[in-house]
Simulated scan of single mutants.
Amino acid sequence: MNTKKTSKTIDIDQFLENNKEFWRDLETYCVAECCGIDAFDFSKEHIEKTVSFYNSKDVLSNIDEVILFINTNPLKLMSSSILNHCASKEKFIELFKNIKQVLLGVSI
Rank of each mutant, 00 (worst) to 15 (best):
D64P: 02
L95T: 12
D11C: 12
C35R: 10
K100I: 03
V51I: 14
Q14T: 14
I47C: 02
K97D: 10
P74Y: 06
I67K: 07
C30S: 15
V106A: 01
S61N: 07
K89C: 10
N71P: 09
L83W: 10
V51F: 00
A32T: 10
V102M: 01
L75D: 09
D11I: 11
I108D: 04
L16M: 10
I82M: 08
F69E: 04
K57P: 00
F96C: 11
D38T: 14
L60S: 02
K5V: 14
F69Y: 15
R24G: 04
D11F: 12
T50A: 04
Y29G: 09
D25H: 14
T50I: 03
K8P: 06
A87T: 09
D38I: 05
D13F: 13
I37K: 06
C86K: 14
T72C: 10
N73D: 11
N62F: 01
E65R: 13
I47S: 00
F96H: 08
N84Q: 13
E33M: 07
E90H: 11
S52L: 08
Q14R: 14
L60H: 00
V102S: 00
S88T: 15
I99R: 01
D58K: 13
N18Y: 08
L75S: 08
S81K: 13
N62K: 08
S88F: 13
K8H: 12
K8N: 11
G36D: 06
F96E: 05
L95G: 10
I12P: 03
F42N: 08
F92M: 04
C30T: 11
E90D: 15
K5S: 13
N98W: 00
K57W: 00
T9M: 10
G36P: 06
S52W: 00
I99N: 01
L60K: 09
E94I: 12
L16Q: 03
N73I: 06
K100F: 00
C34Q: 11
L68W: 04
L77N: 11
T72S: 13
F15E: 00
L95N: 09
M1R: 13
C35L: 08
I63P: 06
K20I: 15
V102T: 06
